[in-house]
Every structure is written in C-alpha cells, then in structure tokens.
Design a protein around this nucleic acid. Sequence first.
DNA 1: ACACATTTTAACCATTTGGTTAAAAATATT
DNA 2: AATATTTTTAACCAAATGGTTAAAATGTGT
Lengths: 205, 205
Amino acid sequence: MKQKDQSTEETILQAARKAFTKKGLSGARMQDIADESGINKALVHYYFESKEKLFALVFEQEFGKLFSNLAAVVSSDLPLFEKIEQIVAMDFEKLSQFPDLPLFVINEVSRNPAMVVKRFRQLRIKDMLGTFQNQIDHEIKNGTIKSISATQLLINIQSLSIFPFVSKPMVKNLFKMSEKNYKLMMQLRKKEVAMFIINALKIKN
Amino acid sequence: MKQKDQSTEETILQAARKAFTKKGLSGARMQDIADESGINKALVHYYFESKEKLFALVFEQEFGKLFSNLAAVVSSDLPLFEKIEQIVAMDFEKLSQFPDLPLFVINEVSRNPAMVVKRFRQLRIKDMLGTFQNQIDHEIKNGTIKSISATQLLINIQSLSIFPFVSKPMVKNLFKMSEKNYKLMMQLRKKEVAMFIINALKIKN
DNA sequence: ACACATTTTAACCATTTGGTTAAAAATATT
DNA sequence: AATATTTTTAACCAAATGGTTAAAATGTGT
C-alpha cells in the first residue's frame, strides 16, 4: 500500500509498472495491482480502462527509458574512445537504477514486435548510425583501430553492458555469488568493460 | 497437429516445448498444447498430470541444452585463444539451432531462481572455474594477455554470443534489418566475436 | 469371442480473472 | 445548505482456464 500524497493515478501506474516488469503482461494480475495500490480493482479500470491499455502505457514509458540519450551520445562529436566510455557509463547507470528494464522490454518486443515499430522510427537510427559509421571509418583509415561496422560495435557494447543485468539470476547461481559479491563484480565490470572494448579495437604491433 | 508415428507422449512434449518457450509458463495454455498435439486436453493431464509438472520437464530439458558441453570445453586443455574460439563456435551453433532457448531459460530462472539451484550444482562450476582461472593466470604471468578474472571473461564471452540472439527482435527493428540481413549480420558475428575477444585480451606493442 | 488393461474423449467442475454496475462516499459548485 | 460532480467501493458477471470423471474406443492376451 502506497501513501496518498501522490495522485491515485500515479500510485496505480507505479504498482502496474512493478507488476508488469516482474511478471510480464500475462503473469501480472489486475487484482495484485489494485492491492499494491491499496485500492479497489474497479478503480484501476476507472482510471485506465483495460489491462491492455494500462500495460501499453507502462511499456511505452519503460521503452523510452531504455533508449533515452543513446542516440544523442552515439551521434555526439566526442572522440571514439571517450564515446564508448560514455555509452558504457550511461548504460550501467541506467541499468543499476532499473535492473528489470531490459528483460521486460525484450520480452514484450519478442512477443509483439509490431508494438514498437513506431517508437523505433522516432529514434532516427539511420542518422545516428551514419555519423557513427563515419567516425569509425575515419579512425580505421587513420590506422587507430581495426576494421569494424558501427552495427557490430554497437551490438558488442550493448551486449557487454546489458546482458549481465538480464542474466543476473543465472550469473548469481552459476558462480555462486551472494548479492554482495554480484554487486562487487558489477562494480568491477563498470570499469573493465569500456577498457575491454577499446582494447579490442586497438591495433597490435 | 502432429502426425502419429511418434508416441503421443513425445508429441505432447514437443507441443509443450513450443508453447512454453514462446509464451512462458503463465502465457501458455493447456488447450493450445492439446490442440497443437491434435488430442484432447484431458489426455495431456493423463500423461503429465499438471501444467507445472509438464513445464518443469520442458524446462529441465531446455536448461540442459543450454549448458551442455560448456563445462567440458572450458576446463579442457586447449590453448586459451583456441578455447575462446571453441566456446564462441559452440554457442553460435547451439543458438542457431535453438534461438528461443536463452530467453526462455533466463525468464524462468528470473521468475523462480530456486528452481535451478540443484541443476547448477551438477555442473561442477567450482572445478571448471578453478582450472580456467589457472590457465588465464598463467598467460597473464607470461605476458601474453592483460589481467582479467575467469568470471569476467566468461561473462564477456557469453554476453557477446548470447545477447544478440536474445535481443533479435530489438536488433532487427532498431537497425531495420530484414530476416535475411539479420542472418547475414549474425554470420559475420560468428567470425568476428572470437577475434574481438582475443584482441581485447592481447597486450599492445 | 471374451476379459482385461490401456488410451482417448466428451462433458463437467471449481477457481481465477478481466471487466461491469449501481450505489455510497467524498469533493466541488451554487 | 443543497445540488451536482468526481472518486471509490461492494457485489456481480461472463469468459477463460486448469483440472476431473465416467464412459467410450482401442488394444492385448487367452
């Protein structure tokens, strides 16, 4: 039960966010959301009509969180290596704050890909990818880094940043880590991942 | 509807696998499994008692698939770089065959971590991790590679291999790839990922 | 052909679940 | 204070869902 200093609407949305991110669309119950909000189930419908509409709203907000700022940083005019550090730092900060975000978004996009086509259009990916590829090509010509495509590099960065959050329960179990040890390991990662990527790009002689 | 050359039991299990991996425990319907098997719903219960038991069986099998061979390769006596190539190749082969596997397993472990504690014990992680760390430390002392922990390296390898499969619908949408282009990109990745990791480990000059 | 066991089905059942309704309680308007 | 408006609730409802039962169909050994 949440306190009543915030509006009922916001309280419900918060409870819905919690339920949906934890259990998914089909696993979450309207009754749970009502209980968590400390109100009647009918009131949830009074404010948000249907489960689907409430879910769509939650999803839109979470999806936004996941991709906010990415485009801006990727197409900024920072030097490549600094840019990589920036992206990784951004990812770790965001994911530390919202660890359930990526799995939630991935799941729902997997189950209903059509849902996000519009959202992605707004992100102006083509432009972002273009300028990023230019920067990379420039470095390659300079002999600073090995040949790689912007797409592959972005996927590598996001894989190394996001996957350990997504697979947290697996990692914890597999390596028999306590919560404390997991956090410690992730703390180390934050520093090492950017270095790992940059080193992978650098040319050896 | 599946043909009847295989036993009813196996037909049901196959349908269950399909339903559960696609929609998860809460999203899958016993009726769908029955329909897909071309039989009556009661027959599903006749063979597998309850939804939970059927799910547990499917999960156990899929979980096994995901981790089979990993321990063996990691603690084999291959040279480090060859070992990395081997792990990546293994991952790509398995995931190409069962692309829905990792998201399914990750989801259910996230929702019920207790479920896998036993399974993980059987994998003899401690031994595996120990010998792998020894090999890495040896290379570090030799000055062949930069300092890194076995844990972080394994997470890096698995992140780079698994995450693009898990996030396929996101990647496809984000980069506006057709199915063909996605497969082409993954084909390239198969070659590049191991090189990327090895290069990241190597010391410059 | 007959008895016995196994497999499969149709018809139910109880519970859960998303959603509705009509009235009560609280709040705002005059 | 009286009236209208908004917010909240208790009680329902219909559909969906996991599960059961009793009987029918099929198979097997004698």
